[in-house]
Amino acid sequence: MRRHQLHPADTNGESVLATGLGAELSARLFESLQRSGQRLNAEQYVRGLLTLPGRKTLRNIAAQFDGVAAQQRVHHFISTSPWDWMPLRRDLADYARQTLMPDAWVMRPTVIPKSGLHSIGVGQHYLPDVGRLVNGQQAVGTWLASAQAALPVDWRLRLPERWLESPLRQRANIPDGAMPGTLEECVGEAVTEVAAAGNPPHCPVVVDADGVDGVALVRRLSTLGIQSLVRVHPDTQLRLDRTALPKYGDGERAAGELTTSLTRLRQRVNPGNSRTTASVIPVVAASSSRGASLLLIRRWSPAGLPDERLWLTPAGTSSLASVLALTRLPDIVARDFAAVSERVGMRDFAGRSYPGWHRHITLACIAHLVAVLGPGDTPRSTRG
Rank of each mutant, 00 (worst) to 15 (best):
K56L: 10
A278R: 01
T277H: 04
G345P: 05
A278I: 01
L25E: 13
S287F: 09
V206P: 00
I112Q: 08
E184S: 12
T243A: 11
M101C: 10
V269H: 02
Q227T: 14
L294F: 08
V205A: 06
A325F: 00
L58D: 06
P128T: 07
T57P: 02
A27I: 03
E161Q: 14
A42S: 12
P180Q: 10
V106C: 07
S293H: 03
M1D: 10
D241M: 01
A321T: 15
L373N: 00
S119R: 12
P271M: 04
E185H: 10
Q138Y: 07
G384P: 00
S319V: 04
A334S: 15
M86D: 13
C365E: 13
T260K: 03
G67M: 05
V140Y: 06
V140K: 07
N273I: 03
V74K: 02
S81K: 04
T362H: 05
S318F: 05
R266A: 03
W83E: 06
F337E: 14
V207C: 05
T142M: 11
L320G: 01
T313C: 03
I226S: 04
G304N: 09
Y126A: 10
G249P: 02
S319E: 13
Q124M: 14
H7R: 15
P379T: 10
G181E: 15
V74G: 08
T277Q: 06
F30P: 00
H76M: 00
L224W: 12
A190C: 14
T327V: 06
A178C: 10
A338G: 01
L294G: 09
S32G: 11
E189S: 04
G22Y: 07
I174P: 00
W357T: 01
G249Q: 06
